[in-house]
Design a protein around this nucleic acid. Structure first.
Length: 255
DNA sequence: ATGGTTGGGCGCCAA
């Protein structure tokens, strides 16, 4: 079982990349963030032609999430029960007996800003939502663009980045509360080269300098952690022509 | 190189 996450930064622009990547890697599940299109605009037909089913929760211009899978996705949830939010950032669904929670965590813009406050409130609601999901589903995988680098090892220049957005103590504390629920950042169960990241800023030649962060995460419940045999970043698509600023992150599991 | 690039959609906002 191969499960992957990719912030595509517009499905309109990246549809070709997604299809090419699916055909090359044949994951069982690929979750997408920032599709930036209405649900009905998601290219389910094109993905169907290469053998994938689709489920999307979109909106115009910003945000939007989708799940692409070989097997049908059932029991979708698109909102936290106690958090009224027009922004489409959540898509939880069950595939092959595994509960998949696809997240596009708010960026937060700047520490102390209104958007930062929204990010922290959103993360608090996420914690409550995931506590309930863990109660209901022992096979749980929570993945997506978390917009939080868990530790200094996930930042190209932690001294320079400091406590700025994506690394601030309150964000990392909110992420820590997800670990406290019993979720594991499964990428760190395996060996990786130093400087392995999942996002590189378009600006200032971020990718060429490997000036990146690891902010796209796969969190697993205990049973799924034990079943995980590999987790890695595929940075290849970041070097393709007109790329997303994020690379796909993958986790593989025993059946 | 402490800057600048991309996407959406048409003037800037978001990342």
């Amino acid at each position: 079982m191969k499960i992957a996450t990719w912030n595509v930064n517009s499905m309109n622009v990246r549809q070709g990349h997604v299809i090419e990547w699916l055909q090359a890697h044949e994951p069982d599940v690929l979750v997408l963030q920032e599709i930036k299109q209405l649900t009905e605009k998601f290219p389910a037909d094109a993905l169907g032609e290469i053998g994938y089913e689709s489920l999307a929760s979109g909106q115009k211009t910003y945000n939007g999430v989708a799940v692409v899978s070989r097997a049908p996705a059932t029991d979708p949830v698109t909102d936290f029960p106690a958090f009224d939010d027009p922004q489409r950032r959540v898509l939880a669904t069950t595939i092959d007996g595994i509960r998949i929670v696809n997240l596009y965590v708010p960026n937060g813009s700047e520490v102390g800003s209104e958007k930062y406050d929204y990010k922290l409130r959103w993360l608090a609601s996420l914690r409550d939502f995931l506590a309930a999901e863990l109660e209901a589903h022992e096979n749980l995988v929570v993945l997506g663009d978390f917009n939080i680098a868990p530790a200094d090892a996930d930042v190209y220049d932690p001294e320079k980045w400091g406590d700025a957005i994506l690394c601030s103590p309150r964000e990392r504390e909110a992420l820590g509360k997800l670990f406290d629920l019993g979720l594991t950042d499964v990428f760190r169960k395996f060996e990786h080269a130093e400087g392995t990241f999942s996002w590189w800023d378009y600006r200032a030649a971020g990718f060429r300098r490997n000036a990146g962060l690891r902010i796209d995460l796969i969190l697993t419940s205990d049973i799924m952690t034990k079943r995980c045999t590999a987790s890695y970043v595929d940075k290849e698509p970041r070097a393709w022509e007109r790329p997303s600023d994020h690379a796909p992150v993958v986790a593989e599991f025993t059946v």
